[in-house]
Design a protein around this nucleic acid. Structure first.
Lengths: 192, 192
DNA sequence: ATTATTTCTTGTCATATGGCAAGAAATACC
DNA sequence: GGTATTTCTTGCCATATGACAAGAAATAAT
């Protein structure tokens, strides 16, 4: 089986080749069919996965019962409900497969062992978290500073795969607009 | 000197009393005058601080030259530019004191030593990061799901201190509205 | 105290986006 | 293949918020 995604995901200067071998060995292959629920709300996540292929989204249901996509995951990304996994609390987000997916799963206990054993691994982990935090901050700033059209274009550039496999509705809620508006934005874009 | 904020900030079930003593000892008191720059963009952060008293904000300048407040920090909170500190890259956010402030600073090297030595401390750190990530996700969702008025009320509830010491402009950019709009929202609220 | 500067309010008007609904298109189901 | 269901588009109108500008109020500077 191809471990390309794993090697990509765990790229870090302080993670030695030896560490990396150990880390990879702690993962096992896993696959999901389109529509499968990968993390369910109100359960405690028991691990995370590195996505080898397919498209995944995380989402929450807001107080009005509206479904809001919080993230899209593509190849080589870590698919995880951070709060649930690391604070050992029930998940507040759901994660679902938008296409058939294959990936590598690591269980929490195995992760813990590596985290507390390998200095390089925890440096990687901390850097990964720092980067995630940065991306979410950027997202908040984009919601304030950019127009819906600009956010649409940015997503097109960074994750074009999303437009092949996700419905307008999911993309619209991620961008913070209605699907009606997104349909119009797309029309304008195509025209230009 | 009062170490209340320190003890509050480092509350975690896996951080023993012994660990905590060691952690506290790694901090030294520090103070800033109103208007002081605590973290400057394009420099690499050399530590972080636990705020004992005062009000601090972080902000970015967007591509249009607009100043956007990304966060407010109040007593007991960790004031930090995560990306810069943990990825050792130039800061993209600035952090400044909105009032005179006193707090406890820990230098990166001292933090590193504790992080890689004390299992409980890194559990705390990871939990802190997980929680920060969660808060930023919530912020993104609020930008999508809540009206400006709702976001205003939420901030009023969670950080009322902000309204005493920050200008409308800073609060407005944090909430994602213009100061004009915020002035009107406030008026409506007062009326009701 | 006086003046200058920044901050806040208020008015008018423009605009992006939402809400709702109807039809078209695509997809899933039997 | 035909029907049902979901998804997408489009029109009309409502509304929240922005842009700009002028004055008031507060704060800082001399």
């Amino acid at each position: 089986m191809n471990t390309l995604a794993l090697r990509t995901a765990y790229q870090h200067e302080l993670l030695t080749e030896k560490d990396l071998t150990q880390v990879c060995a702690a993962h096992h292959p896993i696959s999901f069919s389109k529509g499968a629920q990968i993390v369910e709300t109100d359960t405690i996540a028991d691990g995370y996965l590195v996505l080898e292929s397919g498209l995944i989204r995380s989402y929450v249901i807001d107080f009005n019962g509206k479904d809001i996509t919080t993230n899209f995951f593509t190849q080589g990304e870590i698919v995880i409900e951070v709060s649930s996994l690391f604070q050992r609390i029930p998940a507040k987000e759901s994660i679902e497969a938008l296409t058939d997916c294959v990936g590598w799963k690591i269980d929490f206990q195995d992760f813990q062992k590596l985290f507390h054993t390998l200095e390089g691994f925890r440096e990687w982990g901390r850097a990964w978290m720092a980067n995630s935090l940065f991306e979410f901050k950027q997202r908040s700033v984009a919601m304030i500073a950019d127009s819906a059209t600009e956010r649409y274009h940015k997503l097109m550039e960074t994750k074009p795969e999303v437009f092949q496999h996700s419905s307008l509705k999911h993309i619209a809620s991620y961008l913070g607009v209605t699907d009606t508006s997104l349909s119009r934005i797309r029309k304008e874009t195509a025209k230009a």
